[in-house]
Design a protein around this nucleic acid. Structure first.
Lengths: 225, 225
DNA sequence: TGTACATCAGTGAACGCGCGTTCACTGATGTAC
DNA sequence: TGTACATCAGTGAACGCGCGTTCACTGATGTAC
């Protein structure tokens, strides 16, 4: 009896394994991050998002305070995956080619045609900017991390200048992606993609007098960003 | 009696002046274009949009086939205003300073903080890209007009190259604006605005070896784009 | 000039629907003994 | 090992609300005579 009470004070007994709920939670977030990137921050309902995770809508509020809370988590998840992906590309690329490689893997038709697995900024940023301060600030914090991650891959430039270049690079990449998607997936869209790519690459390599007419290597096989 | 029938065949008698309905229609479109830029393509209801025009929601379908039809018209209106504005700036600016002037009047805190009177691309493009093909294509057509209008202001460059530069310039400007809005309206946001501006201006003046450290003239007084 | 009247821009109640959220419940889990 | 039971992740019906759309109507307009 004493032992029983003691256990209780140390926390309730675990009927399900400790990780079970966390795994479910993570699964919802992961699936939602795809769907929200595909359909927009207001484009999918709670019921559909739960169905994607193999659940029914009733259980939603055992995992999240509100739909908005899931949007924040799903967005943060997508941004972390992109940032991580850039870091991985950087690891396996020589310093002077890192930014170029990141840009060339970003501005591809594959990325344009698969927003669900791509960068969250082109799909969600404009909507998020209109959301509550809480949501907007969560997004802004992730954006800042992304800027830092890209700035860290720019060699031989003072920190401040690298940060500035990273900001402009992300702006051009995401703007190009949005315009390319508005234009569809034909010639006009490809033209935009190419224009954006060449512009970033020209700005990204000023020490070398902006040559390199974009060898346009075959895009990375995965569209993930 | 003959005269009466004859008049009928030539069109029904006008009980209200011919322009009355057209004026109302135009007023709805104009007001809606502001609200939709502020709140997003799905952010305002038909009732609110009609109230903005001083009407009630019941009359809406006498003017538009559907809410989507208004979105298309309102968006087209906003894009035309921006394009026209760029042409006017160009008219009263020497050829070699036209793009610079347009960019500097676009990437301002005033424009960032007043999306309702600003360029429709940063606020609506990402959402429109997910809309029906009809809506998306209407947007794409207006985007192409905008690209042409900007390309026409780039001197001493072949048509194709000018078009390419115009695409990249618009992508960077609109991407910068989206990121700046996500970042709020403080230092971080101003930093993004500055980074975007300097990047476009560096790319926009390659014949002159990209000097001109941005004299950052006082922004145009109006935020309209 | 004055009266009757046809038109139709605009009104406001009502519709069906989908959404975010709540809640009483179920049934699988694994502990207590 | 076997049985009783407390827990709680997940279920599904129900809620209130706002939305896009419809529709019978109203009343200002200006024409016909």
């Amino acid at each position: 009896m004493l032992l029983y009470d003691c256990k209780h004070l140390m926390g309730p007994p675990m009927r399900y394994s400790k990780e079970h709920k966390l795994e479910t939670h993570a699964r919802i977030v992961k699936k939602a991050s795809v769907r929200l990137r595909e359909k927009g921050a207001h484009g999918v309902g709670v019921a559909d998002l739960m169905k994607d995770a193999g659940l029914t809508h009733g259980g939603f509020y055992a995992h999240f305070d509100s739909r908005e809370a899931l949007v924040i988590e799903a967005f943060a998840y997508a941004m972390d995956r992109s940032t991580e992906r850039w870091r991985k590309i950087a690891e396996q690329t020589p310093p002077d080619k890192r930014v170029t490689t990141i840009v060339e893997s970003y501005l591809t038709p594959e990325h344009r045609d698969d927003p669900g697995r791509g960068c969250a900024i082109p799909t969600l940023a404009a909507e998020i900017a209109r959301e509550s301060p809480k949501t907007r600030k969560a997004f802004a914090a992730k954006l800042e991390q992304m800027i830092d991650a890209l700035a860290a891959q720019i060699p031989d430039v003072p920190r401040k200048a690298a940060r500035k270049q990273a900001m402009a690079t992300i702006a051009t990449m995401m703007g190009t992606m949005v315009l390319a998607r508005v234009a569809g997936n034909g010639d006009f869209s490809d033209e935009i993609l190419g224009a954006g790519r060449d512009a970033v690459l020209a700005g990204a390599t000023p020490p070398k007098r902006a040559a390199k007419k974009s060898a346009l290597r075959k895009a990375a096989t995965s569209a993930r960003h």
